[in-house]
Amino acid sequence: MNIIDIHVHPELEDQDYSLTEKMIGLAKRYGVKHICLLGDVLHFGYDPSEEQIRKINDQTIELVEKWSDFFFGFCFLNPKHPEEFMQQEAGRCFKNKNFKGIKLEVAVNARNKHVEKVMRIARNMNIVVLLHSWSTEIIDNREHQSDPEDIAYLASHFPDVKIIMAHVTSARERGVLAIKPFSNVWVDTSGGQPIAGTIEYAVEKLGSERILFGSDAPGRDFSAQLGKIYGSNISEYAKRSILGENARKLLGITDG
């Protein structure tokens, strides 16, 4: 099976590529054909400066160029920065045809007005936006963290922009229901423990076409994260869709 992993973070400290090479080797062991690199998004904390954003994207660009047959890139942005800077940064990343989307982390909540600037850029460039999301019922910090309800709010205001909501494990049933009405929202399976029933519920409510496999490596292990899909009680068609076909269609990946 040609798997696409939509959610992997390189590490800025990996100057000699040892971690990257290890990740590639491990991923291939599991049949992963492509990985989407989202940048070392928390290396400089919640609110990276323009210079720090450039550094993070420099690394993603470098890795995507060096392993162009394996990696795709997402351009990491901080929505608090001026729209002009973000446009320049997106333009710089998207000179490489292997860049597929924009990544937002925890600088601001998805409802924050600043996020609208990013969504306008994504709309104009016709690219997807992958947003971190985690239920704040327990962890609080909603100024930075986005609940699935916040992602739903954003999706309702930008119905023509495709959104990937990360971490369906955290969203759980209520999160899945929150984004269900918005056909412009996909979810990824990355991160969290392999909680049984999560994938089945998401497939039942959203359909398998709106779910994308992600691991959140290297903080997470391909094994445990793939076990979620292999162990779920869903059809083989649904598993194939989640593991690669949906990402291929959404991101316009034509090989394999």
């Binding site: 599991y30 392999p194 049984a196 292990d221 445990a224 793939l226 076990g227 979620k228 162990g231």
Partner: peptide, 16 residues
């Protein structure tokens, strides 16, 4: 940690 987790995840950790 079955049935809280998919047991395949722990097995794959060892298998892989």
């Amino acid at each position: 940690h079955t049935p809280f987790f998919y047991p395949e995840s722990a097995l794959l950790k060892v298998e892989s």
